[in-house]
Amino acid sequence: MTTITAAASATSHSAPGRPRLTQARIVRSEWTKLRSLRSTLFTLLAAVLFVVGLGILISWGRASHWSQESPGDRFGFDPTNTSLSGTYLAQLAIGVLGVLAFSGEYATGMIRATLGAVPKRLPVLWAKAGVFAVVTFVLMTIAAIVAFLGGQAMLSAKHIQTNLTHPGVLTAVIGAGLYLTVVGLLGVALGALLRSTAGGIATLFGILLVLPLIVHFLPSNWSRHIERYLPSNAGQSIINVVHDPSAMQPWTGFFLFLGYAVIAVAAAALVLVRRDA
């Protein structure tokens, strides 16, 4: 077996620095993992298409029917939010992708290789969450800007458009990227907590989509006080420019949503360190 010795000696002079774990290197590894799965690329592409395509399509629809709309329909029309409506669909793709960051590794057994290489474990969670957050924020914010510009172009046919200099508009456009990023982080945390793709996805969308429906059925003097604090309602208040008085203020709502995600990530960290892989 001369090859073994050859290979062994090769490392000793081919390594520029001594091999060693660092947080930056673990981040790089997680970036490689993210970009080397075809499913990730397709899902991200789908999310971009949802935000851009749906935003422009719905803006076009509103504009082309504007002249037939009653004053009641027109009341509270939010041109920014209309052009960002694809966000509500894109959250499905981003959420699933977030859950898969960990659950995909548990399902395939990859997690054993990952935690074998990084036995302290927490750096993996920080790296996964960080890489996922940056990628999602950059892509989704760009998509939101494109959707906004495309959507306003559609709405300008009826002169009902807005622009980025209007108060709250820029916040809402960037807010769409921020909202989707936090949805992804919640997914990452739930994937690490539950270790199951199905369980993680069900829990995530149970919280984001089903919980508001259930609260809606409560007696209205209860639901009135609860609704605005629900994760998705709080988070989505940043995407609205024309404000529903019962909703939270844009940044207050967003930071509450972020707070929920931080709690989920902290719980994931605790479980990741404590439980056997």
Binding site: A15, P19, R20, R25, K33
Partner: peptide, 16 residues
């Protein structure tokens, strides 16, 4: 890519 991702955690070169 599997091996590359593992190698990168330790800064092990791609050649390896």
């Amino acid at each position: 890519n599997h091996l590359l991702a593992l190698a990168q955690t330790h800064g092990i070169p791609r050649r390896r």
